[in-house]
Design a protein around this nucleic acid. Structure first.
Lengths: 165, 165
DNA sequence: TCAAGAAACATGAATTTTCATATATTTGTT
DNA sequence: AACAAATATATGAAAATTCATGTTTCTTGA
């Protein structure tokens, strides 16, 4: 009967889509990020490794988009990971502006181990989450992302380019 | 034909549930956070205001949970918002350890304005996202969160308490 | 071919965030 | 009542992040 909510009116936050999405993301990731930590990585570094298992040798800007990390931040993360021997950076011979990022042997083995863990964890999650089946929630999210990225007008009337934060 | 993906094997990241959740959350929030910025707030501050419209006068720890912000971080954010005249802090007369956080008139009017904007934006989103209906995606997310918070064992075998990052 | 513009990264200063721990207050126990 | 433990918040130093902008290298087209 006595939670922190006010009065009679029903609460805004717990029913707000953007909150639900953020909360779902956090809740789903919490455990696995804990596991990642035990392997000496923070979430952004794990994301970089995971992305590189898909796109080894991609340039910084591509990697930034793929890993959802802002470019200058990614640059700094990559420099650190390079120092730790997880990745190496080589400038692209065809285009000197580009820096291509590769997994080292060490980086790759850690990445592959964690990707395997992630797949098991995901399977645990999806199979134990039975109220919908896994494929369906994923399809829903994919459709939502695609929908969101295709730049629909809305009453906020913001420039699409400025909506990057 | 030539994207950044490797070879034949299908990519891990774009099909990984935790990535989809994070990407969906980011994509859904990007625009609105841009709008929030135009009102002089960053996302965490907006979250605090929104939460206080539900739970005005709650203590710091409660607010931290509700807004999904780590306690010591929230303390600092609240101190700034106090200085800006958006909230005020009063220690609880019944329990001197507690600090209760209240909206000021200024904070409340900004909060209410943004909550109204948020509701319109959410409606835009849900109505323009027709491949599922809004209620359904929300129900799915709610069920997922609840499922995740109810601490199922998994192969990672981590302590539930250490899974807070 | 040259200059203007664009693209890709890097950098630095200001600000935030994190993490561990300090401080203050209350609760529970004997 | 007194002390240990628990709870709530604050704090400080290290680290990470942001934002604007610098530097280098390519591209384009006059």
């Amino acid at each position: 009967m006595s939670n922190i909510l006010e009065d009679g009116k029903d609460p805004f936050v717990p029913n707000y889509l953007l909150y639900l999405l953020a909360a779902a993301s956090e809740a789903a990731s919490a455990r696995f990020h804990g596991h990642v930590r035990t392997r000496g990585l923070r979430a952004p570094e794990w994301r970089v490794l995971a992305c590189l298992t898909d796109t080894d040798g991609s340039m910084v800007t591509e990697l930034a988009r793929y890993a959802m990390i802002e470019q200058s931040r990614l640059t700094k993360i990559i420099i650190q990971m390079d120092a730790r021997g997880l990745v190496k950076r080589r400038s692209d011979p065809k285009d000197g502006r580009r820096v291509r990022v590769f997994l080292t042997a060490k980086g790759r083995s850690l990445a592959e181990e964690l990707v395997a863990d992630a797949k098991r964890h995901e399977l645990d999650l999806l199979t134990s989450f039975k109220s919908r089946n896994g494929a369906e929630i994923k399809d829903t999210l994919r459709a939502l992302i695609q929908h969101l990225e295709s730049d629909h007008p809305d009453h906020l009337g913001q420039n699409a380019e400025k909506a990057n934060s």
